[in-house]
Design a protein around this nucleic acid. Structure first.
Length: 424
RNA sequence: GGAGGGAUGGCAGAGCGGUAAUGCAGCGGAUUGCUAAUCCGUCAACCCGAUAGGGUUGCGGGGGUUCGAGUCCCCCUCCCUCCGCCA
Protein backbone atom coordinates (compact mmCIF):
# COMPACT_ATOMS: atom_id res chain seq x y z
CA UNK A 1 0.00 0.00 0.00
CA UNK A 2 1.27 3.39 -0.88
CA UNK A 3 1.48 6.50 1.24
CA UNK A 4 -1.13 8.92 -0.06
CA UNK A 5 0.67 11.88 1.44
CA UNK A 6 3.86 10.95 -0.35
CA UNK A 7 2.00 10.71 -3.65
CA UNK A 8 0.59 14.19 -3.05
CA UNK A 9 4.02 15.57 -2.31
CA UNK A 10 5.93 13.86 -5.11
CA UNK A 11 3.53 12.62 -7.78
CA UNK A 12 6.23 12.63 -10.44
CA UNK A 13 8.48 10.30 -8.49
CA UNK A 14 5.52 7.99 -7.96
CA UNK A 15 4.72 7.83 -11.65
CA UNK A 16 8.38 7.38 -12.54
CA UNK A 17 8.50 4.36 -10.24
CA UNK A 18 5.41 2.81 -11.80
CA UNK A 19 6.78 3.49 -15.25
CA UNK A 20 9.95 1.61 -14.37
CA UNK A 21 7.76 -1.37 -13.54
CA UNK A 22 6.12 -1.14 -16.94
CA UNK A 23 2.93 0.40 -15.62
CA UNK A 24 1.09 3.48 -16.72
CA UNK A 25 1.27 6.57 -14.51
CA UNK A 26 -1.49 6.70 -11.90
CA UNK A 27 -0.83 9.83 -9.88
CA UNK A 28 -3.29 12.02 -11.79
CA UNK A 29 -6.09 9.55 -11.20
CA UNK A 30 -5.13 9.01 -7.58
CA UNK A 31 -4.84 12.70 -6.82
CA UNK A 32 -8.11 13.51 -8.58
CA UNK A 33 -9.95 10.93 -6.53
CA UNK A 34 -8.18 12.12 -3.43
CA UNK A 35 -9.05 15.78 -4.08
CA UNK A 36 -12.70 14.98 -4.78
CA UNK A 37 -12.95 12.85 -1.71
CA UNK A 38 -11.46 15.55 0.46
CA UNK A 39 -13.83 18.15 -0.95
CA UNK A 40 -16.83 15.95 -0.22
CA UNK A 41 -15.40 15.18 3.18
CA UNK A 42 -15.08 18.86 4.03
CA UNK A 43 -18.65 19.56 2.95
CA UNK A 44 -19.88 16.59 4.92
CA UNK A 45 -18.02 17.63 8.03
CA UNK A 46 -19.48 21.11 7.75
CA UNK A 47 -22.99 19.69 7.71
CA UNK A 48 -22.21 17.35 10.58
CA UNK A 49 -21.04 20.32 12.59
CA UNK A 50 -24.33 22.12 11.95
CA UNK A 51 -26.27 19.04 12.93
CA UNK A 52 -24.31 18.55 16.12
CA UNK A 53 -24.77 22.13 17.17
CA UNK A 54 -28.50 22.04 16.48
CA UNK A 55 -28.97 18.77 18.31
CA UNK A 56 -27.13 20.12 21.29
CA UNK A 57 -29.42 23.18 21.28
CA UNK A 58 -32.45 20.91 21.15
CA UNK A 59 -31.25 19.13 24.23
CA UNK A 60 -30.85 22.37 26.14
CA UNK A 61 -34.24 23.70 25.15
CA UNK A 62 -35.92 20.49 26.16
CA UNK A 63 -34.23 20.60 29.50
CA UNK A 64 -35.61 24.07 30.03
CA UNK A 65 -39.05 22.91 28.93
CA UNK A 66 -39.05 25.03 25.78
CA UNK A 67 -40.20 23.82 22.39
CA UNK A 68 -37.56 23.04 19.77
CA UNK A 69 -39.70 22.21 16.76
CA UNK A 70 -38.04 24.61 14.34
CA UNK A 71 -34.57 23.28 15.20
CA UNK A 72 -35.73 19.70 14.85
CA UNK A 73 -37.12 20.50 11.44
CA UNK A 74 -33.80 22.05 10.43
CA UNK A 75 -31.88 18.93 11.39
CA UNK A 76 -34.31 16.71 9.57
CA UNK A 77 -33.68 18.51 6.30
CA UNK A 78 -29.94 18.38 6.91
CA UNK A 79 -30.14 14.66 7.45
CA UNK A 80 -30.97 13.86 3.87
CA UNK A 81 -28.02 15.82 2.52
CA UNK A 82 -25.73 14.26 5.11
CA UNK A 83 -26.78 10.81 4.01
CA UNK A 84 -25.97 11.58 0.40
CA UNK A 85 -22.60 13.09 1.24
CA UNK A 86 -21.73 10.11 3.42
CA UNK A 87 -22.51 7.69 0.65
CA UNK A 88 -20.41 9.67 -1.82
CA UNK A 89 -17.53 9.95 0.59
CA UNK A 90 -17.57 6.23 1.22
CA UNK A 91 -17.71 5.35 -2.45
CA UNK A 92 -14.82 7.64 -3.26
CA UNK A 93 -12.82 6.20 -0.39
CA UNK A 94 -13.43 2.66 -1.61
CA UNK A 95 -12.43 3.58 -5.14
CA UNK A 96 -9.22 5.10 -3.89
CA UNK A 97 -8.49 2.10 -1.71
CA UNK A 98 -9.16 -0.30 -4.57
CA UNK A 99 -6.90 1.67 -6.87
CA UNK A 100 -4.03 1.83 -4.38
CA UNK A 101 -4.37 -1.77 -3.20
CA UNK A 102 -3.69 -3.00 -6.72
CA UNK A 103 -0.55 -0.95 -7.34
CA UNK A 104 2.76 -2.74 -6.76
CA UNK A 105 5.59 -1.46 -4.64
CA UNK A 106 7.99 0.95 -6.33
CA UNK A 107 11.48 -0.28 -7.22
CA UNK A 108 14.45 0.98 -5.25
CA UNK A 109 16.95 3.29 -6.93
CA UNK A 110 19.56 0.52 -7.24
CA UNK A 111 17.22 -1.92 -8.99
CA UNK A 112 18.08 -2.45 -12.66
CA UNK A 113 15.42 -1.59 -15.25
CA UNK A 114 14.17 -4.39 -17.41
CA UNK A 115 11.21 -6.37 -18.72
CA UNK A 116 11.73 -9.96 -17.62
CA UNK A 117 14.15 -12.47 -16.16
CA UNK A 118 16.59 -11.95 -19.01
CA UNK A 119 17.27 -8.44 -17.75
CA UNK A 120 18.21 -9.57 -14.25
CA UNK A 121 21.75 -8.69 -13.27
CA UNK A 122 24.18 -11.23 -11.91
CA UNK A 123 25.85 -10.06 -8.72
CA UNK A 124 28.18 -12.94 -7.85
CA UNK A 125 28.83 -16.63 -8.28
CA UNK A 126 29.94 -19.27 -5.85
CA UNK A 127 31.36 -22.66 -6.78
CA UNK A 128 32.05 -24.19 -10.16
CA UNK A 129 29.08 -25.49 -12.13
CA UNK A 130 29.51 -29.26 -12.25
CA UNK A 131 29.78 -30.67 -15.77
CA UNK A 132 30.30 -34.41 -15.28
CA UNK A 133 31.93 -36.53 -17.99
CA UNK A 134 28.84 -38.72 -18.24
CA UNK A 135 25.43 -37.46 -19.28
CA UNK A 136 23.97 -35.92 -16.15
CA UNK A 137 20.40 -36.96 -15.47
CA UNK A 138 17.56 -34.80 -14.26
CA UNK A 139 16.32 -35.36 -10.74
CA UNK A 140 13.13 -37.14 -11.76
CA UNK A 141 15.03 -39.65 -13.86
CA UNK A 142 17.29 -40.38 -10.91
CA UNK A 143 14.48 -40.52 -8.39
CA UNK A 144 12.23 -42.76 -10.45
CA UNK A 145 15.09 -45.09 -11.31
CA UNK A 146 15.89 -45.41 -7.62
CA UNK A 147 12.24 -46.22 -6.95
CA UNK A 148 12.04 -43.42 -4.39
CA UNK A 149 10.10 -40.82 -6.34
CA UNK A 150 6.76 -41.38 -8.03
CA UNK A 151 4.65 -38.93 -9.93
CA UNK A 152 2.30 -41.69 -11.07
CA UNK A 153 1.32 -42.63 -7.56
CA UNK A 154 0.73 -38.98 -6.74
CA UNK A 155 -1.31 -38.42 -9.89
CA UNK A 156 -3.62 -41.28 -8.96
CA UNK A 157 -4.83 -39.47 -5.88
CA UNK A 158 -4.03 -35.81 -6.55
CA UNK A 159 -3.42 -35.26 -10.25
CA UNK A 160 -0.57 -33.34 -11.82
CA UNK A 161 2.08 -31.35 -9.94
CA UNK A 162 2.31 -33.63 -6.93
CA UNK A 163 4.86 -36.21 -5.93
CA UNK A 164 5.23 -39.16 -3.59
CA UNK A 165 8.68 -39.63 -2.07
CA UNK A 166 9.76 -42.66 -0.09
CA UNK A 167 12.69 -44.00 1.83
CA UNK A 168 15.91 -41.99 1.66
CA UNK A 169 14.39 -39.22 -0.44
CA UNK A 170 11.46 -38.74 1.93
CA UNK A 171 13.96 -38.60 4.71
CA UNK A 172 16.14 -36.14 2.81
CA UNK A 173 13.30 -33.63 2.74
CA UNK A 174 13.17 -33.77 6.51
CA UNK A 175 16.96 -33.76 6.78
CA UNK A 176 17.31 -30.67 4.61
CA UNK A 177 14.66 -28.80 6.57
CA UNK A 178 16.23 -29.70 9.92
CA UNK A 179 19.67 -28.73 8.67
CA UNK A 180 18.41 -25.35 7.47
CA UNK A 181 16.45 -24.61 10.63
CA UNK A 182 19.40 -25.55 12.81
CA UNK A 183 21.66 -23.26 10.79
CA UNK A 184 19.34 -20.25 10.91
CA UNK A 185 18.35 -20.62 14.54
CA UNK A 186 21.78 -21.64 15.76
CA UNK A 187 24.00 -19.28 13.81
CA UNK A 188 21.86 -16.62 12.14
CA UNK A 189 19.78 -15.33 15.05
CA UNK A 190 16.41 -16.45 13.69
CA UNK A 191 13.74 -17.73 16.08
CA UNK A 192 11.92 -20.87 15.01
CA UNK A 193 8.19 -20.50 14.53
CA UNK A 194 5.52 -23.05 13.76
CA UNK A 195 2.72 -20.97 12.23
CA UNK A 196 -0.71 -21.84 10.82
CA UNK A 197 -0.80 -22.94 7.20
CA UNK A 198 -4.38 -21.73 6.79
CA UNK A 199 -5.02 -18.01 7.16
CA UNK A 200 -7.76 -15.46 6.71
CA UNK A 201 -8.27 -12.77 4.11
CA UNK A 202 -6.67 -10.01 6.12
CA UNK A 203 -3.39 -11.87 6.48
CA UNK A 204 -3.08 -12.53 2.76
CA UNK A 205 -4.08 -8.95 2.02
CA UNK A 206 -1.39 -7.74 4.40
CA UNK A 207 1.44 -9.40 2.52
CA UNK A 208 0.00 -8.36 -0.83
CA UNK A 209 -1.23 -11.60 -2.44
CA UNK A 210 -4.77 -10.27 -2.15
CA UNK A 211 -6.70 -8.81 -3.80
CA UNK A 212 -4.76 -9.06 -7.03
CA UNK A 213 -3.44 -12.62 -6.99
CA UNK A 214 -6.32 -14.62 -5.53
CA UNK A 215 -6.26 -17.04 -8.46
CA UNK A 216 -2.74 -18.14 -7.54
CA UNK A 217 -3.91 -19.38 -4.16
CA UNK A 218 -5.96 -22.28 -2.88
CA UNK A 219 -9.06 -21.41 -0.91
CA UNK A 220 -11.23 -23.54 1.33
CA UNK A 221 -15.01 -23.64 1.30
CA UNK A 222 -15.16 -22.12 4.74
CA UNK A 223 -13.03 -19.11 3.91
CA UNK A 224 -9.41 -19.99 4.61
CA UNK A 225 -6.47 -19.49 2.29
CA UNK A 226 -3.71 -22.08 2.13
CA UNK A 227 -0.46 -20.22 2.56
CA UNK A 228 1.62 -19.94 -0.63
CA UNK A 229 4.67 -19.26 1.56
CA UNK A 230 5.41 -18.88 5.27
CA UNK A 231 6.10 -15.24 4.48
CA UNK A 232 2.36 -14.75 5.01
CA UNK A 233 1.99 -15.99 8.60
CA UNK A 234 5.50 -14.91 9.65
CA UNK A 235 5.14 -11.34 8.46
CA UNK A 236 1.64 -11.12 9.90
CA UNK A 237 3.07 -11.75 13.34
CA UNK A 238 3.47 -7.95 13.53
CA UNK A 239 0.11 -7.08 11.96
CA UNK A 240 -1.67 -4.40 13.99
CA UNK A 241 1.19 -4.40 16.49
CA UNK A 242 2.95 -1.35 17.81
CA UNK A 243 6.49 -2.41 18.62
CA UNK A 244 9.19 -0.67 20.58
CA UNK A 245 12.26 0.38 18.63
CA UNK A 246 14.32 -1.81 20.95
CA UNK A 247 12.44 -4.90 19.74
CA UNK A 248 14.38 -4.73 16.48
CA UNK A 249 15.52 -6.71 14.69
CA UNK A 250 12.85 -9.41 14.79
CA UNK A 251 14.07 -12.45 12.89
CA UNK A 252 11.83 -15.49 12.49
CA UNK A 253 12.05 -18.68 10.49
CA UNK A 254 9.66 -21.54 9.78
CA UNK A 255 9.50 -24.76 7.84
CA UNK A 256 6.04 -25.03 6.33
CA UNK A 257 4.23 -26.56 3.43
CA UNK A 258 3.40 -24.06 0.69
CA UNK A 259 0.46 -24.32 -1.66
CA UNK A 260 0.20 -22.68 -5.05
CA UNK A 261 -2.39 -23.13 -7.75
CA UNK A 262 0.19 -22.30 -10.47
CA UNK A 263 -2.72 -20.87 -12.43
CA UNK A 264 -0.55 -18.97 -14.85
CA UNK A 265 2.10 -21.65 -15.26
CA UNK A 266 0.35 -24.11 -17.56
CA UNK A 267 2.96 -26.00 -19.55
CA UNK A 268 5.88 -24.71 -17.48
CA UNK A 269 8.12 -27.20 -15.69
CA UNK A 270 5.57 -29.95 -16.10
CA UNK A 271 8.02 -32.75 -15.38
CA UNK A 272 9.53 -33.36 -12.00
CA UNK A 273 9.44 -31.56 -8.71
CA UNK A 274 10.44 -28.08 -9.83
CA UNK A 275 6.94 -26.66 -9.83
CA UNK A 276 4.42 -28.38 -7.56
CA UNK A 277 1.08 -27.45 -6.05
CA UNK A 278 2.54 -28.40 -2.69
CA UNK A 279 6.12 -28.03 -1.57
CA UNK A 280 7.94 -27.26 1.61
CA UNK A 281 10.17 -24.33 2.31
CA UNK A 282 12.20 -22.88 5.13
CA UNK A 283 11.37 -19.20 5.17
CA UNK A 284 13.20 -16.27 6.72
CA UNK A 285 11.40 -13.09 7.75
CA UNK A 286 12.98 -9.99 9.27
CA UNK A 287 11.15 -7.06 10.79
CA UNK A 288 13.50 -4.14 11.15
CA UNK A 289 13.90 -0.41 11.67
CA UNK A 290 13.59 1.54 8.40
CA UNK A 291 17.24 2.57 8.61
CA UNK A 292 18.33 -1.06 8.73
CA UNK A 293 16.38 -2.74 5.96
CA UNK A 294 18.93 -2.26 3.19
CA UNK A 295 21.65 -3.89 5.27
CA UNK A 296 19.25 -6.59 6.44
CA UNK A 297 18.52 -7.62 2.87
CA UNK A 298 22.23 -8.25 2.29
CA UNK A 299 22.47 -10.15 5.54
CA UNK A 300 19.41 -12.26 4.82
CA UNK A 301 20.64 -13.15 1.35
CA UNK A 302 23.92 -14.21 2.94
CA UNK A 303 22.03 -16.48 5.36
CA UNK A 304 20.32 -18.21 2.46
CA UNK A 305 23.58 -18.51 0.55
CA UNK A 306 25.19 -20.17 3.54
CA UNK A 307 22.78 -23.08 3.17
CA UNK A 308 24.00 -23.73 -0.35
CA UNK A 309 27.64 -23.25 0.58
CA UNK A 310 27.42 -25.89 3.27
CA UNK A 311 25.63 -28.27 0.97
CA UNK A 312 28.38 -27.70 -1.58
CA UNK A 313 25.98 -26.51 -4.26
CA UNK A 314 27.18 -24.03 -6.91
CA UNK A 315 24.98 -20.98 -7.26
CA UNK A 316 24.77 -17.42 -8.40
CA UNK A 317 22.99 -14.38 -7.03
CA UNK A 318 21.07 -12.07 -9.32
CA UNK A 319 19.33 -8.77 -8.70
CA UNK A 320 15.86 -8.92 -10.16
CA UNK A 321 15.10 -6.20 -12.67
CA UNK A 322 12.06 -3.99 -12.30
CA UNK A 323 9.96 -6.17 -14.60
CA UNK A 324 10.67 -9.43 -12.78
CA UNK A 325 10.11 -8.31 -9.19
CA UNK A 326 7.15 -9.45 -7.13
CA UNK A 327 4.23 -7.21 -6.23
CA UNK A 328 5.34 -6.20 -2.76
CA UNK A 329 9.08 -5.98 -3.30
CA UNK A 330 11.22 -2.88 -3.49
CA UNK A 331 14.36 -4.88 -4.17
CA UNK A 332 14.89 -8.61 -4.66
CA UNK A 333 17.86 -10.93 -4.90
CA UNK A 334 17.27 -14.35 -6.39
CA UNK A 335 19.65 -17.16 -5.62
CA UNK A 336 19.89 -19.63 -8.47
CA UNK A 337 21.38 -23.04 -7.91
CA UNK A 338 23.21 -24.97 -10.59
CA UNK A 339 21.33 -28.02 -11.90
CA UNK A 340 23.62 -30.28 -13.97
CA UNK A 341 20.66 -32.28 -15.29
CA UNK A 342 19.14 -29.18 -16.80
CA UNK A 343 22.52 -27.60 -17.46
CA UNK A 344 21.46 -24.28 -16.04
CA UNK A 345 20.84 -22.22 -12.95
CA UNK A 346 17.36 -22.36 -11.39
CA UNK A 347 15.80 -20.21 -8.70
CA UNK A 348 16.05 -21.73 -5.23
CA UNK A 349 15.62 -18.63 -3.09
CA UNK A 350 14.18 -15.17 -3.40
CA UNK A 351 15.03 -12.50 -0.84
CA UNK A 352 13.07 -9.26 -0.85
CA UNK A 353 13.01 -6.01 0.98
CA UNK A 354 9.39 -4.88 1.01
CA UNK A 355 10.20 -1.59 2.75
CA UNK A 356 7.02 -0.28 4.47
CA UNK A 357 4.71 -1.62 1.75
CA UNK A 358 3.41 -4.66 3.65
CA UNK A 359 3.63 -2.93 7.04
CA UNK A 360 1.28 -0.23 5.80
CA UNK A 361 -1.20 -2.83 4.57
CA UNK A 362 -1.22 -4.78 7.81
CA UNK A 363 -0.66 -1.95 10.27
CA UNK A 364 2.73 -2.99 11.62
CA UNK A 365 4.27 -0.02 13.42
CA UNK A 366 6.83 0.91 16.03
CA UNK A 367 7.44 3.68 18.50
CA UNK A 368 10.75 5.34 19.18
CA UNK A 369 11.44 6.54 22.74
CA UNK A 370 11.53 10.33 22.79
CA UNK A 371 9.57 10.61 19.56
CA UNK A 372 5.94 11.39 19.01
CA UNK A 373 3.66 9.01 17.15
CA UNK A 374 4.46 5.80 15.32
CA UNK A 375 6.18 4.78 12.10
CA UNK A 376 5.76 1.73 9.90
CA UNK A 377 8.27 -1.07 10.22
CA UNK A 378 10.16 -2.50 7.28
CA UNK A 379 9.57 -6.13 6.39
CA UNK A 380 11.82 -8.54 4.52
CA UNK A 381 11.34 -12.12 3.49
CA UNK A 382 13.52 -14.74 1.89
CA UNK A 383 13.60 -18.44 1.23
CA UNK A 384 16.24 -20.07 3.29
CA UNK A 385 15.74 -22.15 1.10
CA UNK A 386 13.07 -24.03 -0.87
CA UNK A 387 13.42 -27.58 0.41
CA UNK A 388 12.12 -29.45 -2.65
CA UNK A 389 14.40 -27.58 -4.96
CA UNK A 390 17.31 -28.07 -2.60
CA UNK A 391 16.71 -31.80 -2.85
CA UNK A 392 16.64 -31.59 -6.63
CA UNK A 393 19.95 -29.72 -6.52
CA UNK A 394 21.54 -32.26 -4.20
CA UNK A 395 20.36 -35.15 -6.39
CA UNK A 396 21.63 -33.66 -9.62
CA UNK A 397 24.92 -32.31 -8.26
CA UNK A 398 25.80 -35.42 -6.27
CA UNK A 399 24.79 -38.02 -8.84
CA UNK A 400 27.13 -40.72 -10.09
CA UNK A 401 27.11 -42.39 -13.48
CA UNK A 402 25.42 -45.46 -11.99
CA UNK A 403 22.46 -43.35 -10.81
CA UNK A 404 23.35 -43.36 -7.13
CA UNK A 405 23.51 -40.18 -5.12
CA UNK A 406 26.12 -39.16 -2.57
CA UNK A 407 24.77 -37.57 0.58
CA UNK A 408 26.48 -34.22 1.26
CA UNK A 409 28.51 -34.18 4.47
CA UNK A 410 26.30 -31.54 6.02
CA UNK A 411 23.24 -33.78 5.69
CA UNK A 412 24.70 -37.06 6.91
CA UNK A 413 24.07 -36.41 10.61
CA UNK A 414 20.44 -35.79 9.70
CA UNK A 415 20.17 -39.02 7.71
CA UNK A 416 21.46 -41.48 10.22
CA UNK A 417 24.96 -41.34 8.78
CA UNK A 418 23.85 -42.48 5.32
CA UNK A 419 26.59 -41.79 2.75
CA UNK A 420 25.05 -42.85 -0.52
CA UNK A 421 21.57 -43.41 -1.87
CA UNK A 422 21.59 -46.32 -4.26
CA UNK A 423 19.09 -48.66 -5.83
CA UNK A 424 18.32 -51.97 -4.17
C1' G B 1 -22.53 -29.38 16.93
C1' G B 2 -25.05 -27.19 21.80
C1' A B 3 -25.11 -23.22 25.67
C1' G B 4 -23.32 -18.76 27.55
C1' G B 5 -20.02 -14.31 27.94
C1' G B 6 -17.41 -10.52 25.52
C1' A B 7 -15.10 -6.74 21.75
C1' U B 8 -14.13 1.04 24.17
C1' G B 9 -7.65 5.19 22.65
C1' G B 10 -0.45 1.99 23.33
C1' C B 11 -2.23 -0.87 27.73
C1' A B 12 -5.80 -1.26 31.82
C1' G B 13 -10.77 0.15 32.59
C1' A B 14 -15.77 3.11 33.51
C1' G B 15 -19.94 4.75 30.93
C1' C B 16 -26.13 1.75 29.45
C1' G B 17 -29.99 8.11 24.91
C1' G B 18 -27.60 14.38 25.49
C1' U B 19 -20.21 17.12 23.49
C1' A B 20 -15.77 9.47 25.30
C1' A B 21 -14.56 9.09 33.13
C1' U B 22 -10.12 7.57 35.42
C1' G B 23 -5.24 5.11 35.94
C1' C B 24 -0.52 3.64 33.72
C1' A B 25 2.71 4.41 29.60
C1' G B 26 4.17 8.17 25.80
C1' C B 27 5.00 13.33 24.10
C1' G B 28 5.53 18.96 25.22
C1' G B 29 6.25 22.26 29.19
C1' A B 30 6.78 24.09 34.41
C1' U B 31 9.26 23.29 38.93
C1' U B 32 13.58 21.11 41.07
C1' G B 33 21.78 20.84 42.57
C1' C B 34 21.09 15.56 39.70
C1' U B 35 17.62 11.62 40.05
C1' A B 36 12.90 10.93 41.90
C1' A B 37 8.39 13.25 42.85
C1' U B 38 4.70 16.97 41.71
C1' C B 39 1.77 20.21 38.50
C1' C B 40 -0.21 21.85 33.61
C1' G B 41 -1.02 20.64 28.71
C1' U B 42 -0.97 16.95 24.99
C1' C B 43 -2.45 12.10 23.88
C1' A B 44 -5.44 8.41 17.72
C1' A B 45 -6.90 9.21 12.51
C1' C B 46 -8.60 12.63 9.14
C1' C B 47 -10.39 17.52 7.03
C1' C B 48 -9.95 23.09 6.64
C1' G B 49 -5.89 26.60 7.62
C1' A B 50 0.73 29.74 5.73
C1' U B 51 0.49 29.91 11.24
C1' A B 52 -2.48 30.45 15.43
C1' G B 53 -6.40 27.67 15.52
C1' G B 54 -11.05 25.37 14.11
C1' G B 55 -13.75 21.01 12.88
C1' U B 56 -15.14 15.83 11.86
C1' U B 57 -14.70 10.92 12.84
C1' G B 58 -13.26 7.20 16.24
C1' C B 59 -16.40 2.63 21.42
C1' G B 60 -15.26 -4.97 16.36
C1' G B 61 -17.96 -4.24 11.02
C1' G B 62 -22.61 -2.98 8.48
C1' G B 63 -27.71 -1.31 8.61
C1' G B 64 -31.97 0.86 11.46
C1' U B 65 -34.73 3.94 15.28
C1' U B 66 -33.93 9.24 17.11
C1' C B 67 -33.41 16.28 16.76
C1' G B 68 -29.19 13.46 19.03
C1' A B 69 -26.57 6.43 19.62
C1' G B 70 -20.66 3.68 22.87
C1' U B 71 -25.62 3.39 25.09
C1' C B 72 -31.94 0.96 21.97
C1' C B 73 -33.21 -2.66 17.55
C1' C B 74 -31.49 -6.03 13.35
C1' C B 75 -27.52 -8.58 10.55
C1' C B 76 -22.37 -10.06 10.28
C1' U B 77 -17.21 -10.93 12.06
C1' C B 78 -13.83 -12.16 15.69
C1' C B 79 -12.32 -13.61 20.76
C1' C B 80 -13.25 -16.27 25.40
C1' U B 81 -15.73 -20.04 28.75
C1' C B 82 -18.49 -24.59 29.53
C1' C B 83 -20.62 -29.19 27.30
C1' G B 84 -20.26 -32.72 23.20
C1' C B 85 -17.01 -34.76 19.40
C1' C B 86 -11.97 -35.48 18.03
C1' A B 87 -5.59 -35.98 16.43
Amino acid sequence: MHDLKLIRETPDAFDAGLLRRGMTPQSTKVLELDATRRKVQTELQDMLQQRNEASRAVGEKKRKGETADSLIKKVQTLKERIGEAEARERTLGEELEALLANLPNLPGPDVPDGNDEYDNVEVRRHGEPARPAFAAKEHFELGEALGLMSFDLAAKMSGARFVVLRGALARMERALASFMLDLHTGEHDYAEILPPALVRDNAVYGTGQLPKFAEDLFHTDDGYWLIPTAEVPLTNLVADEILDAEDFPIRVTAWTPCFRSEAGAAGKDTRGMIRQHQFSKVELVSIVHPDESDAELERMTGCAEEVLKRLGLPYRVVTLCTGDMGFGARKTYDIEVWLPGQGRYREISSCSNCWDFQARRMGGRFRTPGEKGTRFVHTLNGSGVAVGRAMIAVMENYQSEDGSIMVPDALRPYMGGLERIAAG
